[in-house]
Design a protein around this nucleic acid. Structure first.
Lengths: 207, 207
DNA sequence: ATTATATTATACAGGTTTGTATAAAAAAAT
DNA sequence: ATTTTTTTATACAAACCTGTATAATATAAT
């Protein structure tokens, strides 16, 4: 995910900035400001680079955004979902991810919610590459959850008449709404109560 | 809510446009494009007016937005929530509102989700008048739902150990996520399944 | 018809954005 | 040390945005 083969340089003046550090900064800019409202110009100014330098390393705002999104996606609480192997209990992972998200979102000084959800909210349905890619990303996340719900049913963690698709949709909807709530400034206690209550309602045990 | 006393004119050249019609148009522009990305200039161009004319009737983009928001708020499915009297059953109203929302969101050619949710997602946490006002609006909606949940508990429609605050939060989160889902293009069937499943999970009966 | 009043047309200044183009600077390779 | 290669600095044109200011226009009131 980091830039390894990107740096197989041959000769010439070296960059004055660290690429990964730059992407991290840009991610926070998009997170704070959204996609459309943040101009290429502002990115350059805020990072202390000239537009020429930015254009040289990234061909567009879109390209920068995808890098930022990739960077975020690798550090989000729900990556745990993708690591559950068949046979392993599912409920505890849900609890872990949700509890972590509640603590994380409440601990951030600037309450910004989930970067991915924010971007999807802004760009879902847009007939652009960015909109399409965000839709794909969300569908991937949903598919992972469908798989986990089915696994939970097989493992008798959830009732066998559970509708996996609908339940997964509810999880996705919950996570989106949860993100908005945290963006609105809800306390960790509030967020945590929502998490445990929701998990119980879809049928999971909580500690 | 419509402009009545706004039109107590005395003399002078009459407007070339209908004020309410204009606000309706502007609402759709904000709905399509979001708040920040839509410029005052574009509003003027898209409505066929000059900036001078717009500035004359509305002092700012912000003012236009509030009019648009007010216009939308009066026609949204959840207005029904505010009309439930004490003693009246609550569950059927929830079902009605949710079912209507599912049908409505799926029927719109452009899938744009809920205008209010979109705006809140864009501007929640913003230290601006618009951000604050949206936060207030959402809190009002939440308060109405808290009241309804409490009423439902009193009327034995929901279990008496129901946590009204958390349940109302879950409803708000669901509605937000639901909006995002509809924006993403989910079918009416999908949306409807989510609604009935959610209502059952928080403890309501559904037809 | 004349006057008062409100709306619209037009123009301007100052700012921002994008994309490109050209020259200067810095380091690696020979 | 010279050449090659890449990054940076600077500049430009064209487009857009905002806010304001002034003149033209259209109607109600007298």
């Amino acid at each position: 995910m980091t830039s390894l083969e990107d740096d197989k340089r041959s000769a010439g003046r070296p960059r004055s900035f660290d690429r990964d550090q730059l992407i991290e900064k840009v991610m926070h800019l998009f997170w704070d400001r959204g996609y459309r409202d943040l101009s290429f110009n502002e990115i350059a100014t805020a990072t202390g680079l000239t537009r020429a330098s930015l254009y040289n390393s990234f061909k567009s705002k879109e390209a920068l955004f995808f890098e930022a999104l990739g960077n975020y996606s690798s550090s989000t609480p729900d990556v745990l979902f993708t690591k559950v192997k068949d046979g392993e209990p599912v409920g505890p992972v849900f609890y872990q991810v949700f509890a972590h998200a509640a603590k994380l979102r409440a601990s951030e000084e600037k309450k910004r919610g989930c970067f991915t959800v924010n971007c999807f909210a802004e760009l879902a349905g847009d007939d652009t590459v960015v909109g399409q890619e965000l839709a794909n990303l969300m569908e991937e996340k949903r598919a992972v959850i469908v798989r986990l719900i089915n696994q939970a049913v097989r493992q008798k963690e959830l009732p066998k008449d559970t509708d996996a698709e609908t339940t997964a949709n509810l999880v996705m909807a919950f996570l989106s709404g949860f993100s908005l709530f945290s963006k609105g400034g809800a306390s960790e206690k509030t967020l945590f109560s929502m998490c445990t209550s929701f998990l119980q309602q879809i049928g999971f045990q909580t500690p």
